[in-house]
Design a binder for these strands. Structure first.
Lengths: 139, 139
DNA sequence: GTAACTGCAAAATATTTGCATCCTT
DNA sequence: AAGGATGCAAATATTTTGCAGTTAC
């Protein structure tokens, strides 16, 4: 794990520092998406708030993570899968937001179906969010 | 128009006031979605910022408008269509976000295709956002 | 007249920026 | 050693809350 994390950072020309390792580890552990506040909580106040902002921003810039649209004012970030790092972000799967546990889960195997847009519109990216009750909260 | 606006408000047991009429009118005019900041701009600083927050909240509560997920920290609101007011929000169309003019447009005639979720997941709502260049910015 | 709505002030939160210091390479 | 990353302080921006005055019904 340790090695994997270092490799991801190096591959993206980011220096390997404590906060980056820790935050990246968080993403690798949770297979869902994280909001800024989640990260602050789960790292246990170890880092400055500002460092979290900047770390997320640099991960975004490098394409290590991407944002997921939400309906509340809290951007959520998720790891990009392999094909993302090549520049284009084809994060081509559906995201599921559980209304019970509020987790955002990547449904990696559910691909976003394509839609036909009216003439004049040129699409560059498709996002799909499904709200409901997730597997773990089902009872 | 004036009458229509009053009717919407009355139908939802909201008293008819200047700010509500003005803001509702804005929504009726723009067939896209509006962010809080859009509303402040377009009403020309006439209302207190707080009034805008509260007005939007009461419209949300009554189901007159709904939120649209975004990837930047700016909730966008759009008018609900007729079948929304019955309680369930089946805002069943695709939203288009133009990366040039940043407008969010309701593609009323593009329905969200259904997807098959993994077992254990129960969906209650589907949202789809398409990013790209809109009709007006195409040149 | 009463309940609901608004505007102002202020509190609480969230985000950004500058700069000195420290760490990675 | 040099450039980049971090933490602190502080500037901005955003959202929420309380309260007194005003307006709609």
């Amino acid at each position: 794990m340790e090695v994997l994390i270092d490799n991801i950072l190096k591959k993206n020309q980011l220096s390997v520092t404590g906060s980056r390792k820790k935050i990246l580890e968080l993403f690798l552990q949770s297979n869902g998406a994280l909001a800024h506040s989640d990260i602050e909580k789960k790292t246990g106040e170890k880092f400055d708030r500002v460092t979290v902002y900047r770390t997320l921003q640099s991960f975004l810039d490098k394409g290590i993570i991407h944002t997921i649209p939400t309906s509340d004012n809290s951007i959520r970030y998720a790891l990009c899968k392999d094909d993302c790092s090549k520049g284009h972000h084809h994060d081509n799967h559906v995201h599921f937001v559980c209304s019970k546990c509020t987790n955002t889960i990547c449904l990696d195997h559910v691909t976003i179906p394509s839609v036909k847009l009216p003439t004049g519109f040129k699409a560059s990216e498709f996002q799909m969010i499904v709200n409901g009750i997730c597997k773990s909260c089902q009872n």
